[in-house]
């Protein structure tokens, strides 16, 4: 009797358990659906306007297509063409030089600015805004103004330089200096944005660390080296990755400032992709270059992640 009762009890328990789990399951499913419905609009946009074109472009890299006729499969032809294409190699070299020029200087300057503007000074907000301004200014306006500043004879930059050297560089009108000019403008344009990121990083460092360090007799430089820099590592990591990716993507500034010229002096990878696709109608070849660019950026990013992990462990 007792036993029967007991088993009956168990049965009841399991049935309520089942009910609860079923209910839970339903609730979970409902929640998931709601969540998906929230993601859907964004994801749809991503799916249609990003994912499909990316996949399409990847496939195109192995085809020959002029945007009108049916694409033809050509295997690795586009890639073997690339190996012998001097313009591709010039743009490849220019992109690398540009990245090497921009990344370290932007890092240093934006960190320096952030440290300077992290103090309680009169007018600090004004300066923060002032340094951020280039980032939100219209690119075309930037290009026009800088082209005037860089003007070889009448530009203020060369008028200043002429006080020290007889023959200042021709900047955007010289194939030796045009890329340097683009690098300078890029640093000026990017530094405000990364300064803000560094400022946020600096402000999240607990004050106690500095107090403890100064109690231990650390001077300002030691504090910077042993407290500030290590605490900023996640910020630096993020900033470096974003900067490198942005540098490989450079196009707009080249397009409006020099048009890839003089000659091919400022031709960069994305500019070359644009040319191949929209000027010469070689969409297959352009996609192949885009694919190479993707692999390079991915490679560099993976290396950076690996390096960051090792640093974290150390």
């Amino acid at each position: 009797m007792k036993r029967a009762q007991h088993s009956h009890f168990i049965m009841q328990v399991t049935s309520t358990d089942e009910k609860i789990s079923k209910q839970k399951h339903r609730l979970q499913r409902k929640n998931t659906l709601i969540a998906y419905s929230f993601i859907a609009p964004n994801f749809l946009g991503f799916f249609i306007f990003t994912l499909i074109p990316v996949v399409f472009s990847f496939v195109l890299a192995f085809m020959s297509w002029d945007s009108f006729s049916t694409p033809k499969f050509v295997g690795l032809d586009n890639f073997s063409k690339m190996i012998h294409d001097t313009t591709f190699w010039i743009s490849f070299k220019n992109t690398f030089l540009y990245t090497i020029g921009v990344v370290p200087f932007t890092l240093l300057i934006s960190l320096g600015l952030a440290i300077l503007l992290n103090k309680k000074l009169a007018g600090v907000k004004f300066f923060r805004t002032a340094f951020f301004f280039p980032y939100v200014t219209s690119l075309v306006a930037i290009a026009v103004v800088w082209n005037m500043l860089f003007h070889p004879t009448m530009g203020p930059i060369n008028q200043f330089l002429r006080m020290f050297i007889a023959n200042p560089p021709g900047w955007t009108t010289s194939s030796q200096w045009a890329l340097t000019a683009i690098v300078i403008v890029s640093i000026w344009r990017f530094m405000g944005y990364y300064m803000i990121l560094y400022l946020a990083g600096l402000q999240s460092i607990p004050k106690e660390l500095y107090e403890a360090a100064s109690m231990d007799g650390a001077n300002k430089w030691q504090q910077f080296k042993n407290v500030t820099l290590p605490s900023l590592r996640p910020t630096t990591f993020f900033v470096t990755i974003m900067l490198v990716i942005n540098c490989f993507k450079i196009f707009d500034l080249v397009q409006v400032m020099t048009d890839g010229g003089p000659g091919r002096a400022t031709n960069v990878l994305v500019y070359e992709i644009y040319n191949e696709a929209f000027v010469k109608f070689n969409f297959g070849y352009a996609s192949a270059i885009a694919f190479v660019l993707f692999v390079i950026v991915l490679g560099v990013t993976i290396i950076q992640f690996g390096w960051n992990k090792r640093q974290e462990k150390a």
Binding site: G170, T173, S174, S175, Q176, G260, G261, P262, G263, R264, N275, V279, K280, F281
Partner: peptide, 20 residues
């Protein structure tokens, strides 16, 4: 045409700025 046009414009650039 477009590809040749581009090459001719690039070299034109270099002559006129005095780099070539």
């Amino acid at each position: 045409g477009p590809a040749v046009d581009k090459i001719l414009q690039e070299e034109h650039d270099l002559i006129m700025v005095g780099d070539e």
